[in-house]
């Protein structure tokens, strides 16, 4: 953590919002926030993200007939033919199993863990599907699809509802930081501005790509992680840029 005369590090603010700092650090951050509008603003954004996440439904019962369709889809994926990198061979999953593995797999902790994971993923998928149906029109109006230059138009779709809310918070925080950065551009050197603008363009391009992919495949947790990481990089770069002119 930085000293109380400096802005609180973003990671520390996250820990503060999560309540995982030790007592002394909590006290220091708390005092700082009381007297610093910048950190108080960032903390407010973090709190609202947590509050939004807390309001998401914990569970949602799927329709009775959806399991049959999902099971069929999962069974189809089990039979997929898989490429082997480097050798050019095509090997099926069944070819990779050892003879004894099939007999023991139902008793294997790893298999049970995978089964539990599949159950969680299926449950999450159902939840997302249902929520998406309920909120599709509202969200489509709120967040029109982003399309990378030169790419084909994406079919009308929406992001997962949980991420849509998080994206709203990211957008709001980014908007505030962009204002702060724009207000002090004249005090930054041309080289610094070029570096920042180039990096922002790189991040925006990554966000657009990942976002398009997530719109097309809204249940892909990897895409959610990657898109969140790119937003985080943008927030971080803007925060650091906003602090530059005050110290240099």
């Amino acid at each position: 953590m930085k000293g109380e005369r400096e802005h609180i590090a973003f990671d520390t603010l996250n820990d503060y919002a999560d309540g995982v700092l030790d007592e002394r650090s909590m006290s220091i951050v708390s005092k700082h926030i009381e007297s610093c509008s910048v950190c108080a603003g960032q903390y407010s954004v973090l709190r609202s993200v947590l509050q939004s996440a807390a309001q998401l439904p914990r569970t949602l019962a799927p329709p009775d007939d959806i399991w049959a369709e999902l099971k069929e889809s999962l069974d189809r994926r089990k039979e997929a033919v898989l490429p082997v990198i480097g050798t050019g061979h095509i090997v099926s999953k069944a070819d990779q199993r050892s003879p004894g593995a099939t007999q023991k797999r139902w008793q294997s902790p790893a298999f049970l863990a995978v089964a539990a994971l599949i159950l969680v993923i299926v449950s999450s998928g159902i939840t997302a599907l249902m929520l998406r149906d309920n909120n599709a029109q509202r969200l489509a109006n709120q967040y029109p699809s982003v399309r990378a230059p030169g790419s084909a138009p994406v079919p009308p779709s929406v992001l997962p509802v949980g991420f849509t809310m998080a994206e709203g918070e990211y957008s709001r925080a980014i908007g505030e930081l962009l204002q702060a950065v724009d207000a002090q551009r004249s005090r930054l050197s041309p080289e610094t501005i070029r570096t920042v603008d180039r990096s922002l363009a790189v991040i925006d391009s990554a966000i657009a790509e990942a976002r398009n992919a997530l719109v097309a495949d809204p249940n892909n947790a990897t895409l959610v992680d990657l898109l969140s990481a790119s937003y985080q990089r943008k927030l971080d770069l803007l925060r650091r840029t906003s602090e530059l002119s005050s110290r240099i």
């Binding site: 997929a80 898989l82 490429p83 082997v84 990198i85 480097g86 090997v91 999953k93 990779q96």
Partner: peptide, 12 residues
């Protein structure tokens, strides 16, 4: 993904 360390192969 290329794996030159173990015998595990990546899947699609």
């Amino acid at each position: 993904i290329e794996n030159s360390v173990t015998s595990s192969r990546p899947i699609a």
